[in-house]
């Protein structure tokens, strides 16, 4: 099911146009929203929530009209902002319960869900502490908890791994993945860190200068023409290149000890030929995988094209 349909959305701040007749269909599941600074990612999310009024265009989120059913949209959507934010003077449980009540839960239900959601987000031990005393990583988690407490059908995450250290990032990404893939909550993630998107999302929408630049499954975006292979040797070897050519493999490029090859047969045939080439060259193959571009390369290509 599609979670949002946007048609010709235009948003202006004074004379600056942030979104220019933006048209897109956001599918369900976990979707990444990519784009350089100022491409309109945050503006898009803010417009969905009704924080800014579009100058033209229309859209629906989970069947609710943007700009008309803002309250219904906000009830069905959870928003994790990029900025540091919390409600001052409350403990974590009070804060998340309050967010739940604002989200339309009854008082008793809000308190119960606050405990459950905090536990799920890994703040179980710290839930009676004041939010002001939280570390960066905990603040990110509680932002997720307050977005999740009222049981939204769609989560909007703006830079969820901002400022986290490697372990903290890994845990946050696992949470996002678990929410979207096991708990059936649709997720729209905006991030600068493309490997994060690569690891959590199935689809990507690329925004550039306020317009839709590319959209598709991440696997498709990463695919390389002609399905070449990447072969990594223990050390670089000129003999290997020669032997590979003799085996009928086309050598497309080399960087350090990594060679990009193309065979005309099945994948296992290409690997077998590479093995033979390595054996005759007397070198050791350390890695053999189908060459893909990183999402970053795909992204840079999409916005420069």
């Amino acid at each position: 099911m599609d979670v949002a349909e946007i048609q010709g959305l235009t948003v202006r701040y004074g004379r600056f146009t942030a979104l220019e007749s933006f048209t897109a269909v956001v599918p369900g599941g976990c979707v990444g929203l990519l784009g350089p600074n100022g491409a309109g990612k945050s503006t898009f999310i803010r417009t969905l929530l009704g924080f800014v009024q579009p100058a033209a265009g229309r859209g629906t989120v989970l069947g609710h009209e943007v700009g008309r059913d803002d309250l219904a949209i906000r009830r069905a959507v959870g928003y994790m902002p990029e900025q540091d934010c919390h409600i001052p003077g409350l403990s974590a449980v009070q804060y998340v319960a309050l967010a739940g009540e604002l989200g339309g839960l009854s008082k008793a239900q809000a308190v119960r869900r606050a405990h459950e959601v905090l536990e799920y987000c890994g703040l179980g031990e710290a839930r009676y502490r004041m939010v002001e005393t939280y570390s960066t990583g905990m603040k990110q988690r509680i932002k997720l908890a307050q977005a999740l407490v009222h049981g939204p059908r769609l989560l909007l995450l703006d830079e969820p791994t901002n400022g986290l250290d490697p372990i903290g990032r890994e845990e946050m990404l696992q949470l996002v993945r678990s929410i979207s893939h096991e708990k059936n909550v649709n997720v729209l993630v905006s991030s600068h860190l493309l490997p994060d998107i690569e690891r959590t999302c199935d689809e990507a929408i690329v925004l550039f200068q306020g317009r839709l630049r590319a959209q598709g499954r991440i696997d498709d975006l990463k695919r390389v023409e002609g399905a070449p292979y990447e072969i990594e040797l223990r050390e670089a070897s000129g003999a290997f290149v020669r032997c590979a050519a003799e085996e009928g493999l086309q050598v497309l490029g080399a960087e350090h000890a990594v060679y990009r090859l193309r065979g005309d047969g099945a994948p296992e045939d290409t690997v077998a030929r590479a093995f033979r080439a390595a054996r005759s060259a007397g070198v050791q193959v350390r890695r053999a995988v189908p060459a893909v571009r990183s999402l970053e390369d795909a992204f840079l290509e999409a916005i420069s094209g």
Binding site: P267, V271, A272, R286, R287, A288, P290
Partner: peptide
């Protein structure tokens, strides 16, 4: 044994 790819 057909091998499609391998990596560490």
């Amino acid at each position: 044994i057909p091998i499609l790819s391998f990596e560490s």
